[in-house]
Every structure is written in C-alpha cells, then in structure tokens.
C-alpha cells in the first residue's frame, strides 16, 4: 500500500482521504470500519485529555535532565511566532516530558515522538476552535501517513534513526494540518513529503540512551517544521519528489545509518564531553 493508492481510491470512489484510509485498513484486517473508528476515537480522546492536563506543567522525569521546558516555554511571551505555533510547541514539550516522567501517553507513532501530534492538535483545538469530530478525521489522516511510512520504511529509531520517529511524527502532523484546512489529499502528500525531506537523515542519539535529551526538545521543534511544511503545501508549494518516493529514500538512508546513530546512545550528541559528564552523574545518583 502506497500513498498514491490512497489518492487513487479517493478519486475512483469519490471519497475523502480519511475514508480511503479506513477502507484500506478494513480490507487488510477485516475489522469493520465503524469499530476501527471507535477504537481510534478512544485513543484520540485519551491523547487530548492528557495534553490538556499536562500542558505547561513542571514534571519530574526519571533522570532529571528535562521536565521543566514545557513550563518555561508556557511562561515565555513569544517574540516571533504566533499563538498557534507557540501552543503547539508548549504542548509537544509537555507531552514529551510527561513521557519521560512515566506519565500516560499515546505512542503516536512512538513513545519518544509522542509530543508532536498532540502538539499540533492541541493548537487546532485551542486556537482554531476545531471540534472533536473534525479533529478525529484529521487524526485518521495522520495515522494513514504513519501507516504508509511503517509499511514502506520504518517507525523505529533503532532501525532507521530519529527521522523514523520524530521525522515520521512531523510528517503525520503536517498531513493532518493540511487536511484540516484544505481537505485536499494531494496537498497532504506534499506537506508530508516536504516535512520528511527536511528531517531526512536525522540521527537517534539519546544521551545515556534515555528518552530525554535531545528527544524532548526535538518534539517541540518538530511541530514548527510540520506547521511550516503544511503552510507551504496549503499555499500551493508542492514537493518535487512525491511522498512515496521520499519514504523509499528515507528507508534507504535509515539502512545506511551506522548503528552508533540508531538509538544506541553511542554516537551524535550522546558522546560529547558534556553528555558523558551528565551520564556519569546520572548513573552515580543510582539512576
């Protein structure tokens, strides 16, 4: 299954993108569409409830390397970005910190990248007054894009680096945002492609192997890339390379990443002098 198959189904059957995604899933698993939609709605409700309760809160994470960034940014009055971007950023930081604090999260698409999607969805809700019903449809679009990445590349940092986790999350978010404002399936593909191209090759280099540095802040920043890419797609800027081909490229790039840059904590920023010092301290505190 490719993204172009979704588009074909939309055209042939005159259905929306989320409808085409649900139908494709139903054909594969045999689970009735309504039942699937109910299960997705349950996950979605939990995600929105969690982001509402954790937004801008200080949290005690397992290692203490993060936990205060969502709070700090919520207190900051932005100098450049608007309310939409600001809320998405704070929400994403807060959810990623909740994950590091053993809070309840939705691993959409993974635990380490769990902040990006609730980030942009919370902004849609708070700033654009989007209804739960509209948002659920957008959420299915996000899921469909992640599904394509999981089928044709990977969503695992250990296999494909961070491009497969936060990169994929951002592509999913960009597609959902584009669908929310345009309902245009092709533009969703462009937004996802533009995002993934901007994050291609991103390595997974967690300090000490823990899901905190740089994961938490990367979640916050990825919302901004997703919003930027969606804005471009909405404005009519397309990706020269189609989304499916970008996903193929991402798979190849992931395979050529050395193991040290795939969630082992043995490359990238994880081996900088400061990171080493921090890890020593964390371990001596019996963490």
């Amino acid at each position: 299954m490719r993204f172009s198959d979704f588009i074909k189904n939309c055209e042939r059957n005159e259905v929306s993108l989320p409808e085409a995604i649900l139908r494709a899933e139903m054909e594969e698993t045999g689970v009735p569409k309504e039942k699937l939609k109910d299960s997705i709605a349950k996950v979605f409700e939990i995600m929105m409830k969690e982001v509402e309760s954790k937004y801008g809160k200080k949290q005690r994470t397992l290692t203490g390397m993060t936990g205060f960034n969502g709070y700090i940014m919520s207190q900051h009055i932005p100098r450049m970005i608007g309310e939409f971007n600001h809320i998405a950023m704070v929400a994403a930081l807060s959810m990623a910190e909740s994950n590091a604090a053993m809070g309840r999260i939705v691993a959409c698409p993974t635990a380490g990248a769990c902040g990006v999607i609730p980030g942009v969805f919370f902004a849609l809700k708070k700033v654009k007054n989007a209804s739960q019903k509209e948002l659920l449809v957008d959420f299915i679009v996000a899921g469909g894009i992640g599904w394509i990445i999981s089928r044709n590349a990977t969503l695992s940092g250990a296999e494909g680096g961070c491009q497969a986790e936060i990169g994929a999350a951002a592509a999913m978010a960009a597609g959902a945002l584009t669908y929310h404002f345009s309902g245009d399936a092709e533009k969703c593909g462009h937004a996802a492609a533009l995002t993934l191209k901007s994050m291609m090759g991103l390595v997974c280099d967690p300090v000490g192997g823990f899901v905190e540095v740089p994961c938490v802040k990367r979640n916050g920043i990825a919302t901004q890339i997703a919003i930027g890419a969606a804005e471009m797609a909405l404005g009519g800027v397309g990706s020269v390379i189609p989304f499916d081909e970008v996903v193929d490229a991402m798979r190849r790039v992931g395979r050529s990443l050395p193991e040290s840059l795939r969630e082992t904590g043995r490359g990238g920023i994880a081996v900088t002098p400061t990171a080493r010092k921090i890890v020593e301290k964390v371990k001596s505190n019996n963490i």
Partner: peptide, 21 residues
C-alpha cells in the same frame, strides 16, 4: 502493523522497548 498500532498504543512512558515491553 495496523493503523491502530501506528496511532497507539496508550502506555506509560518513556520507552516502548524498555518500559512497555
């Protein structure tokens, strides 16, 4: 991987391999 696996699961963090598994 199904659509539900992509958009979930609901879990307590921080890691699907080291916590959930």
């Amino acid at each position: 991987m199904s659509l539900l696996d992509v958009v979930g699961p609901v879990m307590v963090g921080p890691s699907s391999s080291h916590t959930l598994g």
